[in-house]
Amino acid sequence: MFAVAAIAILVAMALVLWRLFSGPTLYDRVLAVNSFGTLAVLLIAILGFLAGRPDFLDIALLYALINFVGTIAILKFFRYRAIGDETPRAERAGEAGE
């Protein structure tokens, strides 16, 4: 049963990867990265059960944390062109998206 789920997740990841590479806008790619991350969390958890090693769940938890922070950081970077407190330059994000 976990093998079936793992294969389903891998197929879903491949589909999402296709969207990641074909875009067309920046936000499609961010969306795809975010979905890919969620799928990766699920895959790691499932692999833990498949291998009989529940320790994998710790890695999944860590990956979930990093995935969320990473998505927010990417979006913030493209919106303000800076990760820290900088003057907003949101207009340029639109051009980058085309």
Binding site: T25, Y27, V30, L31, N34, T38, V41, A45, P54, L57, D58, A60, L61, A64, L65, F68, T71, I72, L75, F78, R79, A90, A93, G94, G97
Partner: peptide, 27 residues
């Protein structure tokens, strides 16, 4: 552990979707 990961994804999933949509709207 499963419940903790699930709760975390339950809270952050819509938040990142909203952040993506909002960034697209602003752009």
């Amino acid at each position: 552990k499963l419940v903790i990961i699930g709760l975390f994804l339950f809270l952050t999933g819509p938040t990142s979707t909203h952040a993506t949509a909002n960034a697209a709207l602003v752009s």
